[in-house]
Design a protein around this nucleic acid. Structure first.
Ligand SMILES: [Mn+2]
Ligand SMILES: [Mn+2]
Ligand SMILES: [Zn+2]
Ligand SMILES: [Zn+2]
Lengths: 158, 158
DNA sequence: ATTATTATTGAGAATCTATTGCAATAATAA
DNA sequence: TTATTATTGCAATAGATTCTCAATAATAAT
């Protein structure tokens, strides 16, 4: 089931109505794997001549979250940033405090924490959000700082 | 060094000036361990007759973050929520999607992830934010759901 | 197909959060 | 005590999101 089919199913089951505007929004969001915010999405569609009002975009976002197509990633510069979920493996985010860059990385150990938390507190954990802060390799080089822990030059994990 | 002393030191070293307004804000923030937002802080001080303008509160928040006294915790209901840091052990947050409750818990394993991330990518990791989502014990009981993983009734961890 | 029902749209107004300009005030240094 | 200038409070502003409402169109019923 692709993103459009998922949304159609969700819409039907929720007693809502599907519209071309919503499908255009979904298609644009799933075109790239980048993080996005309402304004860039709005301008992007405007440039492609398939302009959709901001109100409709704002009204569609909660539906896309509810249907599991997108999720909130981080709040920055006064507004929320999102990413699509379907077909995009779960990952964490590293934010460089030097250059502002966001770097994605995969990390399974958080699942252990989830499990431990379930067992210990009786929670049902359905998801998580992990963000690391610090300085990226480029910023460390630029400032001539040394990395704290290691000097190995690997990029692969797991 | 308590929070006021830390702030005085920070202010001096940064070439800023300390003011009674700022100390009132800090004292209020360190009165309880609760999460807070600008508006509740403002109203709280207003009720205590030590009213301080919202502009000053907004202008003080970045200084408190910079000096390491508070940090951002989560963005909810259209605005940021904070907590004080000094004298408050680092912890993660579990958010119940049922009742909205935020539950704090301690978790050391994230440090391993930080370390692994440093070593693998050459980042200098200075901090993290981990949030788990799901349903708390009370909400699970209310809905008659069963917990996924365990039925043990412990609350202590580590 | 036609009609009825009502969710959705777009435009702009309204609301809410956060920032900024400015004159008065007050913290620090000389 | 005086000079310097950061800070304050207030009001204006900017920016993000929600809301109002009339027109439109998706779905269900006929
Ligand atoms: Mn991402
Ligand atoms: Mn907390
Ligand atoms: Zn960087
Ligand atoms: Zn709950």
């Amino acid at each position: 089931m692709n993103e459009i089919e998922v949304f159609r199913k969700y819409v039907k089951e929720s007693g809502l109505r599907n519209t071309p505007e919503r499908e255009v929004i979904i298609e644009e969001i799933f075109l790239t794997h980048d993080h996005f915010d309402v304004d860039t999405l709005y301008l992007c569609l405007k440039n492609k001549k398939c302009s959709i009002s901001k109100a409709s975009i704002y009204r569609t976002i909660p539906l896309l979250i509810e249907s599991g197509l997108i999720k909130e990633v981080f709040f920055e510069d006064g507004h929320m940033h999102y990413e699509h979920v379907l077909g995009h493996e779960h990952h964490c985010h590293f934010r460089c405090l030097g250059c502002g860059k966001i770097i994605e990385f995969k990390e399974d150990e958080v699942m252990d924490i989830e499990k431990k938390c379930s067992e210990s507190y009786g929670f049902e954990v359905t998801g998580h959000k992990l963000e690391l802060f610090g300085y990226c390799r480029e910023c460390l080089k630029k400032e001539g700082k040394d990395r704290k822990v290691s000097t190995i030059d690997r990029v692969d994990v797991d």
